[in-house]
Amino acid sequence: MRTRFRIADATRTKDPKSESVYNATRDRLRSIFMSAGTSILGIVPLAIFLRQRSEFDRGLGIEIAGGLAFLTILTPTVVPTLMALLQDFSGDRRKHIIGS
Rank of each mutant, 00 (worst) to 15 (best):
A65I: 05
G91T: 11
V78H: 06
T72I: 01
E55G: 01
T81S: 13
E55C: 03
Q52D: 13
E19W: 12
L46V: 10
R58K: 12
D92L: 09
M34V: 15
T75L: 14
I32A: 07
R51K: 14
G59H: 09
R51T: 07
L86E: 09
M34Y: 14
G67H: 01
D27Q: 01
R28H: 15
I43D: 00
I43F: 13
L29C: 08
F49V: 10
P76I: 09
R58V: 04
R28F: 05
L50F: 10
G66D: 04
R53C: 03
Y22L: 08
T75S: 12
A24Q: 05
I62Q: 10
P76V: 05
S90R: 14
A69C: 10
R51I: 00
A47R: 01
I32P: 02
E55Q: 03
V79H: 07
M34H: 05
Q52F: 12
I62V: 15
L86M: 12
Q87I: 11
R12C: 04
T81I: 10
E55Y: 04
D92M: 04
V79D: 08
A84N: 06
E19L: 15
L46F: 15
G59R: 07
R58A: 03
L46Q: 00
S90D: 14
L68Y: 08
P45A: 00
S54I: 02
D92R: 13
Y22K: 12
N23P: 02
G67T: 15
I48L: 09
P80A: 12
I73T: 02
F49N: 12
S31N: 07
A69I: 02
A10F: 06
R26I: 11
R30W: 12
L85M: 07
F70E: 12
S39N: 06
S39L: 09
R53L: 11
R93Y: 13
I48M: 05
T75M: 11
A69P: 06
D27T: 01
L60Q: 04
L41R: 09
E63D: 02
R93H: 10
T25S: 08
L50D: 07
L71R: 07
T38A: 11
T81C: 07
E55L: 10
S35E: 02
S54W: 07
A36H: 13
L85K: 09
K17V: 11
K17N: 02
K17E: 14
A65P: 02
Y22T: 04
G59W: 06
E63F: 08
T75N: 06
T13N: 10
Q87M: 14
R30C: 00
S35N: 06
Y22S: 05
S18Y: 10
Q52A: 11
E55K: 03
V79E: 08
V78P: 06
I40F: 07
A36S: 15
F70L: 15
Q52C: 01
A84Y: 01
L60S: 09
G37L: 06
L60K: 04
D15G: 01
A84S: 09
T75C: 06
G42Y: 09
D88V: 11
V79W: 12
I62N: 04
M34G: 02
L82A: 13
G42C: 11
S90Q: 11
D57R: 08
D88G: 11
F89W: 14
V21G: 01
G67R: 03
I64C: 06
L60E: 02
